[in-house]
């Protein structure tokens, strides 16, 4: 299908907690799920990755304009990969990058890792696809008759 994916290294899990080894674990899972040839890394990455701007309470701080300016670097990084989706394993990253994709009109998808794991296992139902775009919305739907 040639759908390409990149991944956001969450600051909290990677740089601030477990370091590069868990970033490798994350890539092992992501590549196993989407196929190695469909994965593109951002630069810089792993412990050296840029924060997306969703952390530290920024999402709730009321400084919308500054939050998006902060996130421009992340948006440009993602666009440079040419990926159709950015995988976000953290809620704050997910909300922020989703907003960046719309605001800066990159229109790349932003998905939770659990969504792709279940999609690859063939157990992702029709109502669990909120963050999949048209390219994957109808792929391997588990129990399509249960669509709401």
């Amino acid at each position: 299908m040639k759908v390409k994916f990149t991944v956001q290294d969450p600051c909290q899990i990677v740089r601030k907690s477990y370091g590069d080894p868990i970033a490798e674990d994350l890539r092992f899972v992501v590549k196993s799920v989407v196929g190695e040839e469909n994965f593109v890394d951002m630069a810089p990455n792993r412990s050296n990755n840029y924060c997306c701007g969703g952390g530290g309470g920024f999402l709730q701080s009321g400084h919308y304009e500054e939050r998006r300016l902060y996130g421009r670097l992340k948006d440009e990084q993602i666009k440079a990969t040419g990926a159709d989706y950015c995988i976000a394993g953290c809620h704050n990253c997910h909300a922020q990058i989703h907003d960046l994709s719309e605001h800066y009109k990159g229109h790349y998808g932003v998905v939770h890792l659990w969504t792709l794991l279940c999609l690859s296992l063939g157990i992702l139902g029709p109502n669990e696809r909120e963050y999949l775009k048209d390219d994957l919305k109808d792929v391997r739907v588990f129990h399509p008759e249960s669509a709401m």
Partner: peptide, 16 residues
């Protein structure tokens, strides 16, 4: 300044 609320405390500055 409100800058303290615009830093996400991501710790990349410490890393480098």
């Amino acid at each position: 300044t409100k800058w303290a609320w615009m830093c996400t405390m991501c710790q990349r500055c410490i890393y480098v």
